[in-house]
Design a binder for these strands. Structure first.
Lengths: 152, 152
DNA sequence: CTCGATTGAGTTGCGCGCGACTTAATTGGT
DNA sequence: ACCAATTAAGTCGCGCGCAACTCAATCGAG
């Protein structure tokens, strides 16, 4: 019932500043915000850019495979892909051997956008300003965290 | 102009799996998803929970101060606070000495919710399953990253 | 004291992100 | 061969999250 809070920074405290989850939440939004002006040049949002990354890597991917790669539900991807199609960057085709499945292909415009996107990761890497070791450590810990939290 | 992608994992590659930004994006959503069932018990969303954390820490905070603490705009906070008010957890009052400012106070129900919330950070910490050193390293790197990316 | 600039809160529009659901196609056990 | 269960994609509702904007209150230079 104490209203005046002066807790120590122990494990499981309710202090915002102590919490990893908040650092994660803040960092993720800060990075997305940093991307925005760069992606505006390409006419993409950040999730749309991630989809394009997958397609530039491997053209002709099903919605299901996209969802697996990006950890996104079809309820998120379907409208997003609709917008990419409307922007003329992708095509969607029903697979003939399994009519449930929809395969995404790049249009010429979508494939060409890759050239313009080439400078984006460099610019972001520069803005992040982590040295290679910090970058590797961060990726390692974030993947570990994701795996732990997902299967629990 | 190469369509077939077999790049090395150099700095600035367009490979999704190499990118720190994607690891960050995926981890943030995974953690939020892990919170959801716990916060459902409290009738809170994750951003609402963060607001309550701030208020439990220091009751009587202005919208502007909340925004600074959480790195959120008033356009995000105003509707969110409206919902917390509708849920009977907070009150909003215009400050008398500066009529522009709105101060947020916990209601009794809002203050009491703190008791039920006490187990949440523990459960999340357990699910994250990072040892204290990893936890500290992750927080350090994420704060560094946020700071770097914000002022660039 | 005045009035243009700044500040705090809020509204609007749009794109996620996901839970809950629907529909259609495929699978598999009997 | 059948049909119940599963699977893939999509729709709907709602809550963010932010840019662009409005409005009212306050500040501050002259």
């Amino acid at each position: 019932m104490d209203q005046a809070p002066d807790h120590p920074a122990e494990q499981g405290s309710l202090l915002l500043q102590d919490q990893l989850c908040f650092a994660l939440y803040a960092a993720s939004r800060a990075v997305t915000t940093r991307y925005r002006p760069l992606l505006d040049e390409l006419g993409l949002t950040y999730p749309q850019y991630l989809v394009m990354l997958v397609l530039w890597q491997q053209n002709g991917v099903s919605v299901r495979e996209l969802g697996t790669a990006l950890h996104l539900e079809s309820s998120t991807l379907s409208p997003l892909l609709k917008r990419l199609e409307a922007a003329g960057l992708i095509r969607r085709e029903r697979r003939t051997d399994d009519e449930r499945s929809v395969v995404i292909h790049l249009t010429d415009a979508g494939a060409e956008l890759r050239t313009k996107a080439h400078s984006v990761p460099l610019a972001i890497g520069e803005a992040m300003a982590l040295n290679p070791e910090q970058d590797a450590t961060a990726k390692h810990l974030l993947r570990l965290l994701t795996a732990n939290v997902t299967n629990s």
